[in-house]
Design a protein around this nucleic acid. Structure first.
Lengths: 192, 192, 192, 192
DNA sequence: GATGAATGAGTCTTCATTCAT
DNA sequence: AATGAATGAAGACTCATTCAT
């Protein structure tokens, strides 16, 4: 007996196909028929798993965002130093963006485009709380600048998406050293 | 005699309509007919000014990017200190993103999405040279970190787009003080 | 031991669901899946009882027509006076149309629409023979007008369907007195 | 220069095709593509003249009903005797139903089916007023039975539809004499 | 007998693009 | 130059029917 049901496998294939095709063509230029074909499933089958096209992207977005968040807090424990804690999280995020390029690109497109609806956006944000908590503590300990978390995010986390985009376009290559340098830049921007 | 011909007015109206509609609905959810209607022009007329839909976005992208670049180097002269020069450019860019929201949102969507083709992307990049030159000089003078300009861009310029997005969604508000803080963060991330 | 088998119950439920849904939405706007759901039966199960959708309506039509005919000749015996016999039958039919509205509406829709096939139409007509016989006798006795039975039906029986439709749309209300008046009109049209 | 514009010709062709196809297959079994083909028009063109399929039937229904009503009161003038007035109207209606079979069948299907929406039904009813007025006068003059106009309609006008249906199915043939007999039956049912 | 997931042909509708005026 | 009616290919979605369980 399988631990992963046949149904789950199909849903997974659909999610994966959606990510790949939306990355390459954009949401509206990706027909359901192509998603079905890539997932090796009939066109009608999509509608057994998702209500409609909008529901499909929404769910894929939430799924991927959840996986991203889980990855972001790998090996992170709340008690440690702000400094070290941020480094762990930042490097996790960087690793995700560089290793799981497909997923990361998909999130980037959703986050800069009106294809995902507001409720799903909200849902996707939920999991980032530990980072916000860490920053809050960092501010109290006067290690982190006393500015809005949106500012902290903009200057320390968001830039990774740009680097990922450039890497994807083969304009720029991220190496081990690069990453350490990038981390330095992120930290410099938010530390007091 | 008018300095702006009737033709130019129509082209401008089409460009403006495209920006507005693509911002709100995305490229593929924006029909040519709606663009025509908003520009108060017949559907067929678009094809007198642009080859097809792809050509339309490409040209709009290049236009807006040119306007953006021009704005970015307002009041900037190449000879001055790296420090001051960067501040001028950065604040120009920030001003653009916060004042010309429509244009800025459009660029953000194009830059994170496969709707504009690669040649147009390249074309749009051309005008940023003075900033790259400034950074190069900054590196020589050991004021700017000796890292790839993509890294510099990612951490100092790209974050502004995130703040703009948040402001647009009314999640976050940029004020005078905020902007100075943001500039601080940008500068801290790239300075040695 | 049950007189009604489990199978028969399912078939009955399917027939009932079909009547109700076709009444409200029309035949082609009624999916098999909805019929199945309303009958609390799996979609595939329908095909154990009926060959396909066409066969389903056909059979439902024949069933309902049979029930209708049976009801029409309740308390009627062939030997009595034409006058009295017709009154009994007519009032039975009126009662059916006004009490069993669902069934009557279904018949009305089938009789004015190409959804039931010709063989089933013929089959459904079979049971009306006693009325035709009565009319035939009435003509011989020079009580009933010597015209085609289709004419007799058109002017004496068919009008009830119109009244039922109006009642169903809550445009017109049939009361005890109304019915007697209606019967008068029916009789006046066919009597010599 | 034509008195009938090219546009009007196309709309007419679409209306005609709709009537014919809905008669033979029913509304929901008539694809827009077939209507387009029969009207010798591209599928997309339908949507220049009608908002959607529902709007198409609604408009066709209203159109046909208007033509029917106009025909019904041909040669009729309000001042004459109730008796004669009714005969003129009744025979006009009969002539319409037997000459313009396509249109009449279409109306019959719409009137016994939920394919036309309620507002359009109301709209279609408007034109029958002169007949209602005549009946009202007939009641005052104690020539017509003092019953609801729905009853009068059911027994005198509605039966014609049945005869038309039978004729269409080649089960029954309406001749000159038949029609006079039928008129007799209609009049007998409503006269005092 | 019974289920319901899966199929894929078929439907309505949209929209980029053309072309006669 | 400008129009906008017309096209028809393509897309989202539905649903009758099948079949492995």
């Amino acid at each position: 007996m399988n631990t992963v049901s046949k149904s789950q496998k199909k849903r997974d294939a659909l999610v994966k196909a959606t990510i790949s095709l939306v990355n390459n063509n954009g949401f509206h230029a990706t027909p359901m028929s192509k998603i079905a074909k890539m997932a090796e499933v009939s066109a009608g089958t999509i509608y057994l798993y998702f209500e409609n096209k909008q529901d499909l992207v929404n769910q894929v977005y939430i799924d991927v965002k959840a996986a991203f968040s889980k990855f972001a807090f790998k090996d992170y424990e709340e008690g440690g130093s702000v400094n070290k804690g941020f480094e762990i999280i930042w490097k996790n995020i960087a690793e995700f963006k560089l290793m799981k390029v497909e997923e990361a690109m998909f999130l980037s497109q959703c986050d800069n485009t009106p294809i995902v609806d507001e409720p799903s956006r909200k849902e996707g944000l939920k999991h980032l709380q530990p980072l916000l908590d860490l920053w809050e503590r960092g501010k109290k300990e006067e290690i982190i600048k006393p500015v809005s978390p949106y500012m902290l995010y903009a200057f320390s986390i968001y830039p990774i998406a740009f680097l990922m985009n450039m890497q994807e376009r083969e304009i720029f290559k991220l190496t081990k050293e690069n990453i350490d340098e990038a981390y330095e830049m992120a930290w410099n921007s938010i530390k007091i």
